[in-house]
Each structure stands twice: as C-alpha cells, then as structure tokens.
Write a protein that binds this DNA or RNA. Structure first.
Lengths: 198, 198
DNA sequence: CAATTAATTGAACAATCATTCAATAAATAT
DNA sequence: ATATTTATTGAATGATTGTTCAATTAATTG
C-alpha cells in the first residue's frame, strides 16, 4: 500500500517521531508538544492530523502491531519442507535478534494500556490470536507430513507462544546478554521437545 | 514489622492511595495532586513524605513487590509432604483467584518502567529470581523424596514460571473468564507434565 | 491564471504538573 | 509548662499538558 498522499506521509512521520519519543520516555510520557519539537513543527499541526491524543496512541499501536505482525508474516511464509520450516521458525522465535526488531519498552508501555482501554485490548488480542493461528497452521502441516495427530496443533502453538511470551517477559529484567541467551536457549529446547523436533 | 511511628502510617496511607489511583489511571498518569485529593490533604504534604515523584514511584513498587513476594511466601511455606506441597502450589499458581490478589494493570504499568529505570529493573529482577529460587527448593525436596535427579530443579522451576508469566500475559487480553480459565488449565497441565505430577 | 483546497503557523486557553516556601497547628520531649 | 520537633496548611512558582482558532502560506484544481 503506497502512501501517495502527502497526508499519509505526514501521518507516518508523526508516528515515527512518536515511536522515537516513546522509546526513551514511554508512551504515556510522550506528548504532542514533544513530537512537534522533534519534527520542528507547531503542536497544532499534530492536532491537524490526529484530532486527539487518544487517536495518536491508537494509531501508534496500530502501526506497532502491524509491523510486528508483518515481521512474523515474512518468517512464516518462508519456503521449505514443513520440518525445515518449523525448525528454523522456532530457532528464530527464540533468538534475541528477532526480539530486537521491535522496542520492548514501547511494546510493554503500550501493553499496559490494555488494562484501561478496551479498544487497545482487542487490538492486542487480535495480534496474539493471529500469531497463534499462523503457527498452528504450520504445525498442522508439519504433523501431517510426519503422519501424526493433527488435532493437537492449536494447543502446541499456544504452548510455544506461552513460552515465547514468558521468556521475553523475564529476560528483559536480566542485564547480561549471556543470561538472556541462556534463558532463551532453555525455553527453546523445551519448545523443541514439545514439537518433537530432532 | 509494626508501623509504630505516625510517619510510617502516613506513608502507607499515601502509597495505598497511589495504588488506588494507579489501578484506574496507570502509574504514569497518577500524580501527587490526585493522591492529595483522595486523602483530602494538601499536595505539599505528599512532598513532605516523598520528596520527589521518583521516590513515590519507587516506594510504590517496593510496596507492590513486597506484597507479591509475601503472598507467594505464605503459599510456599505451607505444611505437607513434598508431593502434596508441589501439587497444591501448582494448582494455586495457575488459578485466576491467585492472580487477582494483585492488580495486573498496576503491575504491568510498573513493569513497563523497567525499560527506562535501572533501579526499578533490578527490583523486578530480585522479585522474579527470588520466586524462582523458592520454587526450585521445593522442587528439589520433591525430587529427593521421589529418589529422582535433583540437578534439574532450577531448570524446572524456571520453566514453570515461564509458563506462569506467559499465561498471565496472554489471558489479560482475553475477555471471557471461560477463555482465561481454559488457557490457564492448558498451561497448568503442561507444568504438571514437566514435573511428572500424577 | 484564478479559485479552491490543504498544510502550516502562531498565539492563546484553562488545566494540571512537580515542587518551593513560609506560616500555622499539633504532638512530643524536657 | 516550655521548648522543640513534627505534621499540615495554603499560596505561589514556572513548566508542560491537550486543544482551539483565526491567519497565512503552499499545493492542487478548474
């Protein structure tokens, strides 16, 4: 979807600046004034494109979640046999580089809004359910390929993502890369065991 | 530790009001003025007890984490055979009531500060590592009791908490209690399998 | 080129923010 | 009972917040 209109380009610029500020100060401490300053523009111009701050936050989350989903999408749609696909996918899901594609500070800062905003809550829900469904399909074809019971695909997908979510939640508190890597490796192994990946 | 001094009681009152506001508006949208209003007191009185807002946030997180740890502590120190203890403990860890003992909105709102404040980060780290260590000890005595290999206790404890963290992260996006319960049940079963609980 | 629409400015708004300071009230110690 | 410390008030600070509105500049269209 090309952004032909100037309006859409400007909106994207604003969101990028918002994201940038949110990285260092958090979503809630970001403001229209700060965004305007970064873009060297009047605050009223921000309002011209996003009528309220709520609109701005909502758009940022859309922008974030879409990007998140897109990154996963690319990974999911790689070619190869089901066995190879699932193998590399798990490898990627539990790699720190993967996680670094998106700023965790902004992500959790947005996530914390889930408890006060039903609109945001449903957006997050859609993202996570979407990811689980995608993985489930891949697991399904993997199980089929190996002549195994397909019916457990949903549960396996869910378990894998529970491990992913739980792992990243925890490693953000660990200061050294070594500790983080160790923990990710441990969770990855469990996921591989569950999926019976050799 | 009894709060003899009036000062300590007042501080506790202030933190309780802070927690209350943070529940409905989030940690970052809370303010000294709002706390003062709830307590029907002048804003300057809040400053008298907590010199800066940073102090206030720091104290709230201490208060939260201590309470969190305390709840776990009670559970961990229950009497019974190792087998029974671990069984009921897992049962409790994956029950929604358990999680409801503390407000998730405040918790994740605080957690999101981890990415911008090293002091808060280390506090969260201490909490989570402490919990893992406690569970590890119980698993150890449970394995010993069953004449099994003790060396895997740390890893098992870690895996269980990864499942706990990942599960609660996810179910906060699910609207119906039924969905939440289903997901918790699924994660609990996996934990029980890992621990070989009959 | 003229007319119209869109982009942007700049000034202003009341509200809230964290924090300061001196004055007063209450509690505690001597 | 007096002195001293602590608790609390109340007024004020300058900064920042989200938002409004009219004026101006630039881009697009007829």
């Amino acid at each position: 979807m090309p952004l032909t209109s100037i309006t859409e380009i400007r909106k994207q610029e604003i969101l990028k600046a918002f994201y940038q500020i949110a990285m260092s100060e958090g979503v809630e401490n970001s403001s229209m004034a700060k965004i305007a300053k970064v873009l060297e523009v009047q605050p009223s111009l921000i309002v011209h494109y996003f009528k309220t701050k709520e609109d701005l936050v909502s758009a940022l989350i859309d922008y974030c979640l879409e990007r998140y989903f897109q990154i996963f999408e690319e990974e999911f749609s790689r070619p190869g046999t089901p066995s190879l696909k699932i193998k590399t996918l798990i490898e990627r899901l539990f790699s720190k580089e993967w996680n670094d594609l998106f700023d965790d500070g902004v992500f959790y800062s947005s996530y914390s809004l889930v408890f006060r905003d039903d609109n945001i809550k449903s957006k997050f829900k859609i993202l996570h359910e979407g990811l689980r469904k995608k993985l489930s399909l891949i697991i399904e074809s993997y199980l089929e390929f190996n002549n195994e019971d397909i019916s457990q695909a949903d549960e396996l997908s869910n378990q894998v993502f529970t491990l992913v979510d739980g792992s990243y939640y925890y490693i953000n508190m660990l200061s050294s890369k070594k500790e983080q890597a160790f923990h990710l490796e441990s969770a990855k192994k469990l996921a591989q065991t569950l999926l019976k990946i050799s």
